[in-house]
Design a protein around this nucleic acid. Structure first.
Lengths: 154, 154
DNA sequence: ACCAATCAGTACTATAATGGTCCCATATGA
DNA sequence: TCATATGGGACCATTATAGTACTGATTGGT
């Protein structure tokens, strides 16, 4: 199973919580309670999300976090990328590792892998935070033709 | 980073190797050498792939493995699903875990997650094994017969 | 000026997942 | 019958993950 960590899952919930009220400052303890995780965990995630630029933070007595952009301008790939690193499915896609591939005569496999990673990336990038807080009966218009981005362009 | 295990990566390489010569029986030691992994690891993967129905196996002196279907009829989601379990990104998608979601007023998040998982699934399902062994810049065309030029180099 | 609330950064530990190997049983063909 | 293969687990070392704790910096109110 292609997996994303529990923490990233929490992170999505945190972002959706903030998206419900994007103008207000939300302190960590409020977020922790709303999402249902312990305070240290919420702290950690909020810090990471803020450092990556998805959240703005304000310190002090009435401080807290809020989205740095509108929910329409934040996608799943932003959040997942912030918490798990760049999206990619194998080491081939992000780092260079020409160890095994050479044997298999012209590592077309690697280039195709990158293309698959791109497709997954596109799928995640096409879902915005604002869509995540809508009832799922609303149509989501991403990936109408998934194969299009996979096929090699001439 | 959305990740796929190293073993699954090897599994893809193994499948592509077998796809180069889909009619012949390939013993494990040959596959191991061609792909560049140690024999025990290749054994493990081949066994798993065979048990999941992607490969046929023949025991005995001239035994080995071969694809149970044509490379056009095997997709990435088949291979990844065989080696990593069903494709999904969070526990919401495959198992029921209504613990945290209830708090977040009508877990639309979960249903939307399932949609995202579906998109990733579709992306992986749209790439066939036969496409993986083609050079990525070439337009896709079907391989009706195994071509000599695509055989692994000695 | 002081204090309390809040975020920033980092270090740490226990648990779980992964990667990799080995053993023994079973089937097959020469 | 024997060498060659696969079938199915069990096993351990290493790594990654989840979760927590601690110290320091900043802000706002009194």
């Amino acid at each position: 199973m292609i997996r994303i960590g529990k923490l990233t899952d929490y992170g999505i919930l945190i972002m959706t919580h903030l998206a419900h009220d994007p103008e207000r400052l939300h302190p960590a303890h409020e977020v922790a309670q709303a999402v249902g995780v312990n305070l240290p965990t919420a702290n950690k995630l909020l810090k990471t999300l803020a450092r990556s630029g998805l959240l703005e933070s304000h310190r002090g007595t009435k401080g807290g976090y809020l989205l740095s952009r509108s929910p329409e301008a934040i996608t799943m790939v932003d959040i997942i990328g912030a918490l798990e690193g760049p999206v990619g499915l194998t080491d081939c896609g992000t780092a260079e590792q020409p160890g095994n591939c050479q044997r298999e005569g012209s590592c077309s496999v690697r280039a195709n892998w990158q293309r698959i990673s791109q497709a997954v990336h596109d799928a995640l990038a096409s879902v915005t935070l604002s869509e995540m807080i809508l009832p799922p009966s609303q149509p989501i218009h991403f990936m109408t033709r998934p194969s299009a981005s996979l096929r090699p362009q001439p």
